[in-house]
Design a protein around this nucleic acid. Structure first.
Lengths: 343, 343
DNA sequence: TTGTAGGCGTTATCAC
DNA sequence: GTGATAACGCCTACAA
C-alpha cells in the first residue's frame, strides 16, 4: 500500500495534481488555499488532505504571474564589506519580511552596477532600494519609468521624468559633521586633513562640505584622497601623508580608514591625540575598542525606513516624494582629545 | 510627433508589444533576444529598434516559468548581525552572481525558521543554502524532496530519505580548538570556563567537544551558558560568573562574547592575561584592536564554496554528497598570555 | 458551492 | 527565416 500519489522526487506537485487527487477542480483548490470564497467543509477537508499528502507548495512563479506581483524587493549595495551594510540589510530584511516580501540583494562590488544587472533585478521585484553610488541616475529613472518604484538610501533623491523624484532616506551628515568639526577646533586643531575616497559615496561629500564650512574660517583644511575605504587603504594613505607633513588632525571618512590612520600614526611613534587627532564615522564595534571618536548613525533604521517607504510606494500611495533624514550623534572617545569618554 | 508606443508608465512593455511594433511575431522577437536560431539581419534590426524604443525588458516571471528555472538561490541565516554573516553573504553573493543567479536572503532572527517561510523561499529559488541551526532537519529533507537542492553551511549534513545526504561546507573547528586549548594549558590555565550559548550553532558544539578532549585531562573545565551571543550577553554572563568564582581562563564562543568578558573583567579590576586568559573565535575587526586571541575562519570562502556546491547540484551533478572542511588558524594576541602577537 | 476557460509573459516545437 | 500555438502553474471572472 502506498499513499495515493507518491510525492515524485525532483518535481513539486501542481495544483492540478491536488485537484485530481481530491476529486475537485483547480479553482476549488485555489479557493481553499486563499480563502477567497466559501467552500463546503467536507470539500475543504478532502483538499487539505490531498495538499498534505502531496506536500503541495504553490509555485511562486505561477502565483506571481497570476497576481501580477513578485512579493519581493531588491536592494543594491556598492559593497557588502563591513558592518555598515550588514546592519542596513538587517533592518531592511526584517521590515520587508514583516511586510510579506522577500529580499533580493545585489552587490556591485564597488563598481557602478552593470545596467543589465540592475534592469534584470528590477524585472524580478516590485520595488528597489538603491544605496549610494551604485546606479547612475539615468538607470534609476529608467527603472522607475518601467514601473518599479525606487527608494534611494544614503544618496540624493533622483529627479524623475514625471517631474516627481525618488523617495529617499539618509542619515543627518551635516549636523554631526559640524559638531565634530567644532569639537576638533576646540581641541586646538589648526591644520586639518579630510581623508577618504570622494568617489565612495554622496554621504562623504556632504560631510566634507560641512567640515569645510566650519573649519575653513579657523584652520587650514586639506582633502586627501585614499584609494579605497577600508583599513588598509586608510593606513596606506596616512603613511604617505604623514611622511611629508604632519597635520593636527585627520578626519577620516569612516571608522575603517580612521583605524588605518591610527596604525600609521603608531608606526611613526606619534601620540594620539597629543600629536594627532583622529576621528572616524559609523561607530563600528572596533571603534569602541580603539577609543576612536566617531559618529553613530542608525544603520538598521535606515534599512527599515527604506523598506517601509518602498512598501508604501508599491502599494500605490500618491503622497509626494518623502525625504527622511535620520538623526546621528557624535561619540566622543580618546582619539580627539582628553575628556570624558562615551561608550 | 511622439515615438511609436509611448512607454506607458507603470507597466512594462511585453514581447507582444515589441512584436507588434516591429511587425513580426513573438517567436522572432524571442529568437533575436536569445540568439536561439538565425534571424535575417534586417529583421533583427527592426526588432532591436522596437525593443530599444519601448525600453523592453523581458519579464522574469515569464522567462522563468517557460524555462522552468528561477535563476535565483536562497540563503537562510539565523541572524544578520555581526561581521561573520556579512562576510559569508559577501562570498556567496559574489559567486552566485558570477554563476548568473540572484540571491534571496532570509533571516530567521535567532528563532527556528517558520516552516512556511522556508518552504515559501524554496518555491522561488533553484537551490538553498541553510546556515547553522535555522531549519529543522525535517524541513530540509522536505525541501530537497520537493526538488530544491540544499547545501548546509556550518552545520552537519542532513540525511535524506533518498539515502543520500546534503552537500555541506564548514570551517575546521576541531583542529584550531585543540590547538587553542593546548596553548591555553601552556600558559598555565588549570581552571577553564567555556562560555557561550550552546543553542547558537553546531559549530560551537564541535569546538567545545574539542576543547574538552584536550583540557579535561589537565584542568578543571566548566561550561557556562550565556543567553545570547553578542557583546552584552557575554558581559552579563561574565559578570555573574566572575562574581562567584574566578577561573584562569575563559574560552568564549565568539569574539563578541569574549569582548564582553574583557569588559566585565576590567570592571572587576582583573588583569588580562595576568589574572584571566580570554579567547574568542572569528577574528572580527574589533578583536585586533582589543588584542584578543582568537581563531580566524575563512568566511567569504565558506559562502563561495557553498554557492559553487549548490550550483553543481542544481546543474544536476550526480557526484556523491560533498563535505568540505575549510582550514582555520589560531591568531595569538595578548589576551592569552605574553608573547609575540599576530596581527 | 463548484467547474470551465481565459489570461499572466515567455520559450520552444512545429509547420510553412 | 518566420509564424502559429501549446506549454509552464496559478488565479479568477463567469457559468452552472
Amino acid at each position: 500500500m502506498r499513499s495515493p500519489e507518491p510525492p515524485e522526487r525532483g518535481r513539486g506537485a501542481t495544483i492540478y495534481d491536488v485537484a485530481a487527487s481530491a476529486g475537485v477542480s483547480v479553482s476549488t483548490v485555489s479557493r481553499v488555499m486563499r480563502g477567497t470564497a466559501p467552500v463546503a467543509a467536507l470539500t475543504r477537508e478532502k483538499v487539505g488532505e490531498a495538499m498534505r499528502s502531496l506536500r503541495f507548495v504553490p509555485n511562486r512563479l505561477g502565483v506571481s504571474l497570476a497576481e501580477g506581483r513578485h512579493a519581493a524587493n531588491g536592494i543594491v549595495f556598492p559593497d557588502l564589506t563591513g558592518p555598515y551594510f550588514a546592519d542596513v540589510l538587517l533592518g531592511y530584511e526584517e521590515a520587508a519580511g514583516e511586510l510579506g516580501r522577500s529580499v533580493i540583494v545585489l552587490s556591485t562590488h564597488g563598481r557602478d552596477a552593470a545596467p543589465a544587472s540592475v534592469l534584470g533585478l528590477a524585472s524580478r521585484v516590485d520595488g528597489l532600494v538603491v544605496l549610494g553610488r551604485t546606479v547612475a541616475d539615468e538607470f534609476v529613472e529608467q527603472v522607475v519609468a518601467g514601473g518599479t518604484p525606487v527608494v534611494t538610501l544614503a544618496r540624493p533623491t533622483v529627479a524623475l521624468a514625471s517631474g516627481a523624484s525618488t523617495d529617499t532616506v539618509c542619515a543627518d551628515n551635516r549636523t554631526s559633521a559640524e559638531e565634530l568639526a567644532r569639537h576638533v577646533l576646540t581641541h586646538g586643531a589648526r591644520d586639518v586633513v579630510l581623508l577618504g575616497d570622494p568617489d565612495d559615496s554622496p554621504d562623504v561629500a556632504e560631510r566634507w562640505a560641512a567640515f569645510h564650512a566650519v573649519l575653513a574660517p579657523a584652520a587650514r583644511v586639506r582633502t586627501v584622497r585614499s584609494h579605497g575605504f577600508d583599513e588598509a587603504a586608510g593606513a596606506r594613505a596616512a603613511r604617505s601623508l604623514l611622511a611629508e607633513h604632519r597635520p593636527d588632525a585627520v578626519l577620516a571618512q569612516n571608522d575603517e580608514v580612521a583605524l588605518g590612520v591610527l596604525t600609521a600614526a603608531a608606526e611613526r611613534g606619534l601620540n594620539v591625540p597629543g600629536d594627532l587627532i583622529v576621528t572616524g564615522w559609523d561607530d563600528v564595534m572596533a571603534a569602541r575598542w580603539a577609543g576612536l571618536t566617531t559618529v553613530r548613525q542608525p544603520m538598521r533604521d535606515l534599512g527599515e525606513r527604506a523598506a517601509r517607504l518602498l512598501d508604501a510606494r508599491i502599494t500605490g500611495t500618491t503622497a509626494p516624494p518623502q525625504h527622511e533624514v535620520l538623526p546621528t550623534r557624535v561619540v566622543h572617545r580618546r582619539t580627539c582629545g582628553p575628556h570624558q569618554e562615551d561608550r
